[in-house]
């Protein structure tokens, strides 16, 4: 079972690399923000999978909850800033 979860972890990391390509390449700044949003979703799932591997889900779930809330605040800040300034 551990090998399977390791496979899941590696696949998620590769998917994060795909999103990183979009963040670096993206034509507009909103593509980059969208890519970062997708990356953070993957990171939240990754933390929960890691908790399953280490058998400490109760602790890792708290970390991923905090990560989700921080992601919300950060995305709001960036979106509000770009909206008021009118692009970058």
């Amino acid at each position: 079972m551990n090998a399977f979860f390791l496979f899941v972890l590696i696949t998620l990391s590769l998917l994060i690399l795909v999103y990183l390509y979009r963040v670096i390449q993206g034509p507009t700044v909103f593509d980059r923000v969208l890519g970062l949003n997708g990356m953070s979703t993957k990171a939240i799932i990754l933390v929960v999978v890691m908790g399953t591997v280490f058998d400490r889900v109760d602790m890792f779930v708290d970390i991923s909850t905090g990560y989700a809330l921080l992601n919300l605040v950060g995305a709001f800040a960036v979106a509000k800033f770009l909206e008021q300034r009118g692009g970058l």
Binding site: F30, N37, A79
Partner: peptide, 21 residues
């Protein structure tokens, strides 16, 4: 709880980004 949080927050983030764009 994490799943419910993702379902509530992710549309809000996507909407904020797209509205700014």
């Amino acid at each position: 709880v994490v799943l419910a949080l993702l379902f509530l927050l992710n549309p809000v983030i996507a909407h904020a980004t797209i509205r700014a764009a």
